[in-house]
């Protein structure tokens, strides 16, 4: 292939590829954002969007639709999609397995269970629940599931078994959640049902603010960890010999991936396959697994993927809205299957 290239020109070609991927991602992000504002039960012409927003005619219906409904939802899909993909990437690094992710390992379900409990508890007593409480609940749920998986991983050396264990944890948590939902007050159920299946609908700017703060800080920290992540990709022993403090590093990976997936679960419920499919597609596109390029690209890719899926969820069968997981599964699961087939062949 590029066997005879000089190192310098090979490097140049790699850089060019990275740049191309980033440009495409940014263009896709812009296009999908505009489409998302444009399409809906009330179509808003592309040319009008900027004018409506600039005029700030707070009383116009179109302004309200854009500003109060569509934009927060778009921002949320962007942030949470990026967060979910990044969380998947971190878990894949941690377990050294490309099929690891917050959904398959049961981490999303763990978060969902605790959030459902907290939601019902607060709604019953106070009639409302703050997004902060939900995030804290989701974070503890995630950590609980991760902790359980880590405990199991000491005994189960085989990765496939560990994944099965994760899926089982997911089932148990889902069963508990279903149980809670079944016996919840009628008024809570409406809220809970939509959320527990995954959706970006009904987001407020307050939600966006909290999610943005958490996700962007966590993502920045992940980016700063790209050097040790790169070392860790060669295995724990090598990483340590290069000067990585393995204990601290592993703790940081788990904490960050939990914060990221917990934020997603707290606001949008569990969303399947994004965490596995996006990092995989991005690595293929970049043809590298170097964290320093993969991390930002994965975040962008996850944003584009979720915004695209949300657009479909919202509009495909309008006015009926699909669950976000329905759409992400349709696109994500085939990617995962293709990936497993490829790996099998590579052996």
């Amino acid at each position: 292939m590029s066997q005879n290239l000089s190192p310098a020109s090979a490097r140049f070609r790699r850089r060019a590829r990275y740049e191309l991927v980033f440009v495409l991602l940014v263009v896709a992000l812009a296009v999908i954002t505009v489409l998302n504002v444009n399409i809906g039960s009330v179509p808003i012409p592309v040319g009008e969007i900027a004018r409506i927003l600039l005029r700030r005619a707070t009383d116009s219906a179109q302004y309200s639709i854009i500003w109060k409904i569509r934009l927060p939802r778009i921002m949320m899909a962007m942030l949470l999609g990026g967060a979910l993909s990044l969380s998947g990437f971190l878990l894949q690094t941690f377990f050294g397995n490309p099929i690891a992710g917050p959904f398959v390992l049961g981490i999303s379900s763990g978060a969902k269970m605790v959030v459902a409990l907290v939601m019902i508890f607060f709604l019953d007593r106070l009639g409302r629940v703050s997004s902060f409480a939900l995030i804290v609940a989701a974070f503890f749920g995630s950590l609980m599931a991760v902790g359980f998986i880590l405990l199991l991983s000491r005994r189960l050396k085989h990765m496939a078994v560990l994944l099965v264990a994760g899926i089982m944890i997911g089932y148990i948590c889902n069963a508990v959640t279903d149980f809670i939902v079944t016996f919840a007050e009628d008024s809570d159920i409406v809220n809970l049902r939509g959320w527990s299946l995954g959706s970006f609908s009904g987001m407020s700017w307050e939600n966006v603010g909290v999610a943005a703060a958490l996700v962007l800080i966590a993502a920045a920290l992940v980016f700063l960890l790209s050097k040790p992540i790169g070392a860790y990709q060669l295995g724990e022993a090598y990483a340590q010999s290069m000067g990585v403090n393995i204990r601290a590093f592993r703790a940081a990976l788990i904490a960050l991936s939990s914060v990221l997936s917990a934020t997603v679960t707290a606001f949008a419920g569990p969303i399947s396959f994004v965490g596995i499919a996006v990092p995989h597609l991005i690595k293929r596109a970049l043809n590298t697994s170097k964290p320093i390029v993969v991390i930002p690209a994965t975040f962008l890719g996850g944003a584009v993927f979720c915004m695209g899926c949300d657009l479909i969820a919202r509009t495909a069968f309008a006015p009926t809205e699909l669950n976000i997981s329905t759409v992400t599964s349709v696109f994500g699961a085939p990617v995962v299957i293709a990936m497993m087939l490829k790996r099998q062949k590579g052996r």
């Binding site: 490309p98 990709q233 060669l234 295995g235 022993a237 090598y238 010999s241 690595k283 293929r284 043809n287 590298t288 697994s289 170097k290």
Partner: peptide
């Protein structure tokens, strides 16, 4: 170090 464990890094 050069270790015995066989690593399978992705796309490196």
């Amino acid at each position: 170090v050069v270790l015995t464990e066989r690593m399978k890094p992705e796309l490196m």
